[in-house]
C-alpha cells in the first residue's frame, strides 16, 4: 500500500557507485557448487549410495547447524547464500565414503559451529572451517574416519598410506591416470584430483577465484616434493604423485583460498600458497597422518596475519 501512495514518477535513490560488477556471495557459492559437481559425480560413481548418504547428511547438518546458531544469536538466516551447504560438502569431501551418518552430522555441524559461528559467521573466522571440522573428527574418532579402516570392502589401496607405511615401491605401480581419476582408495571427494582441478579451473575462468593461491600452492607442493625427490629418489615420491593424491587439489582450489583465512594482498597470497604447499609435503613426509592436508591448511591459516603484513605503500603515503 505504501508503494501505491507514492507519486508515479518517484525514483529509486541509492548512493554511488550505481554500477556493480555483478559478483555476489550467492553467485560465488553457486559456482562453487557447480565446480564441486564433477567430483561429487565421480565419488558417487565409485562408492555408490554410500557417497550420496555422506554428502546428503553433511549438507543437511551444516545448513541446520547454521540456522540453529543464527536463531540463538538472533541473526538473519543466511541458508539461501549456500555458504553452509558448501562448507558441509567440502567437509564431506574429506571423509571416507562409509563414515556413519551420525558422525557425518556431528562433524558437519561442528564445521559450521566451531569453524565459523563462534567467530561470528561466514567470513569472520581466521581458519578454514571444513579443515577445522576434519581435524576435530580426526582427533576425536580417528578410527571411524580412517580411510583404510573404513573402506576395507573395496579391494584397493590408499596411495598415501601405502607410501607412508610401505615405502615408495608400494605405490610405484599406481599409474598417474588412475590417481587423477580417483580410482584408488581415498577420501570421498578429495581423491577426485582431475575433477577438482576442472572445478577449480572453472572457478578461475568464471573469475570467482583468483589464481594466486591455487597456483602458488600447487607450485609449493611441486617444488618441495621435487626437492625431496632429488635428495633421495628411492625414498621420496615424485612431485606428480603428490600433486594428484590425497587432498592436494581440494586444498589448492577450495580450502586454501577460504576467504577470511587467506591473505588479501598479492605478494602475501603468493607466499601463503607456497608456504602451504611446502607444509603439506613436510607433513606428509614426517607427520603421523598419511595426508594431513587439513593440518597444512590450518597451519598456513595461522600465518595469514603475518603474510598480510607485506603490504604496499598507500597511495601518496610517506
Amino acid at each position: 500500500m505504501a508503494q501505491a501512495a507514492l507519486p508515479k514518477s518517484s525514483l529509486t535513490v541509492t548512493s554511488a557507485p550505481f554500477w556493480h560488477c555483478g559478483r555476489t556471495l550467492k553467485g560465488m557459492m553457486t559456482d562453487t557448487l557447480i565446480a564441486l559437481t564433477p567430483a561429487m559425480a565421480m565419488a558417487v560413481y565409485q562408492y555408490g549410495y554410500h557417497a550420496v548418504e555422506v554428502l546428503a547428511w553433511a549438507g543437511l547438518a551444516a545448513v541446520l547447524a547454521e540456522a540453529l546458531a543464527q536463531k540463538i544469536m538472533a541473526r538473519e538466516y543466511t541458508a539461501d547464500d549456500y555458504t553452509a551447504l558448501v562448507g558441509g560438502l567440502l567437509f564431506a569431501f574429506m571423509l571416507p565414503a562409509t563414515t556413519p551418518g551420525w558422525l557425518v552430522c556431528i562433524g558437519s555441524a561442528l564445521t559450521i559451529l566451531l569453524g565459523r559461528m563462534v567467530f561470528g559467521g561466514y567470513g569472520m573466522s581466521p581458519v578454514c572451517a571444513p579443515a577445522v571440522g576434519w581435524c576435530v573428527m580426526t582427533i576425536s574418532w580417528p578410527d571411524l574416519i580412517d580411510i583404510n579402516g573404513m573402506l576395507l570392502n573395496w579391494d584397493l589401496v590408499h596411495p598415501l598410506s601405502e607410501l607412508k607405511y610401505f615405502g615408495l615401491e608400494a605405490v610405484a605401480g599406481l599409474s598417474l591416470p588412475s590417481l587423477m581419476l580417483g580410482q584408488n582408495l581415498g577420501a570421498l571427494g578429495a581423491e577426485q584430483s582431475l575433477m577438482l582441478l576442472l572445478g577449480g579451473a572453472y572457478l578461475i575462468a568464471r573469475k570467482q577465484l583468483r589464481w594466486y593461491i591455487p597456483v602458488s600452492f600447487l607450485l609449493g607442493v611441486f617444488l618441495t616434493a621435487q626437492l625431496y625427490h632429488l635428495i633421495d629418489p628411492q625414498r621420496y615420491a615424485p612431485p606428480l604423485f603428490h600433486l594428484f593424491t590425497g587432498g592436494t587439489m581440494l586444498a589448492a582450489f577450495f580450502l586454501m583460498p577460504y576467504p577470511s583465512a587467506s591473505p588479501v594482498w598479492r605478494t602475501a597470497m603468493l607466499l601463503y600458497g607456497l608456504f602451504g604447499g611446502a607444509v603439506l609435503i613436510i607433513i606428509r613426509t614426517y607427520g603421523i597422518y598419511p595426508d594431513g592436508m587439513a593440518f597444512a591448511v590450518l597451519l598456513a591459516n595461522m600465518f595469514t596475519p603475518l603474510f598480510d603484513l607485506i603490504q604496499p605503500k598507500p597511495f601518496g603515503g610517506r
Binding site: 555483478g22 559478483r23 559467521g121 561466514y122 577470511s260 588479501v264 598479492r266 597511495f315
Partner: peptide, 29 residues
C-alpha cells in the same frame, strides 16, 4: 540506471574476501 540491473546494496557483513583490496588504487584495505 534501471533498478534490478545490479545486485542490491545492503548492510551485509564483510566476509573478508579481499576483492576490494585488490581493486583499490590507493593500496589500502
Amino acid at each position: 540506471v534501471q533498478e534490478g540491473l545490479f545486485p542490491q546494496v545492503g548492510p551485509n557483513p564483510c566476509f573478508n574476501c579481499g576483492e576490494c583490496v585488490l581493486a583499490c588504487p590507493a593500496g589500502i584495505q
